Amino acid sequence: MNTAAPAPPAATPRTRWHRLRVTEVRHLTADTVAVTLHVPADLRQDFTHRPGQHVIVRHRQGGGELRRCYSLCPPPYAPTTLRLVIGRGSPDGFGTYAATRLTPGDHLELSAPTGAFALPDLPGAHHVLLAGAPASPRWPRWPPTRCAGTRPAASPSSTRRAPPPTPCWPTNWPS
């Protein structure tokens, strides 16, 4: 069966591209990097973001253009930081470029943050739905105060539980 590759994320004619400087490329795993970007003062309003939003990265190489969507993954200690976590995909894709050749001082073209995949900020118990690409960090998005007293739901497709990096819930639950 021959199927066509999915089309890249569409950018509307109104999409404005912003050239941002890479300030840090941190290797999280052999195939994943966290890329931190500097947002100049005149663009801070455009790049103010909320949980559940993403940006489109436009990368031009070899006469072609790649567009990829990445969730915004700021570290818990700096929630306003513009950081993307990028996984290596196909050998000719942007993830491979980011993991092997992207360095501080380079520039990337990004759209402003968009999207609204988030739960309302309500007081009380929070339930966590884990979703996203394998490279998306999951537990670091919630500080310990947000998950106190809650228990993670096991994924229906998996019977194993990943331990959190912080003690968000009691450790004496039965396995």
Rank of each mutant, 00 (worst) to 15 (best):
T171Q: 12
S158E: 11
T145Y: 08
A41Q: 10
T3M: 13
G124V: 09
D121R: 05
T159V: 12
P143F: 08
E65K: 03
A135R: 00
T100Q: 14
N172P: 06
A116W: 08
P13Q: 11
V35C: 10
W17R: 04
H54N: 12
A125S: 13
A131C: 11
T159K: 06
L102C: 09
R88I: 11
T171G: 13
P140W: 03
P75L: 09
R26P: 00
T103E: 14
R16F: 06
C147R: 11
P143A: 08
P163F: 11
Q61P: 03
L129W: 11
P123Q: 08
R161N: 09
D46A: 15
E65N: 11
L108N: 02
P9F: 14
A112P: 00
V35P: 02
G63V: 08
A5I: 13
I56C: 07
A7F: 04
P76W: 01
A41D: 15
T32N: 07
F47P: 00
Q53I: 07
R67M: 14
G62P: 01
R146C: 00
L37D: 02
P152W: 04
P76K: 01
S155R: 06
H49C: 01
V33W: 01
T23C: 08
T159H: 12
V25Y: 07
R68N: 14
L110W: 04
G132S: 01
G132H: 03
R26C: 11
I86K: 00
P140C: 07
G87P: 01
G62A: 11
Q61M: 15
P137E: 07
A131T: 15
G95V: 10
P74L: 09
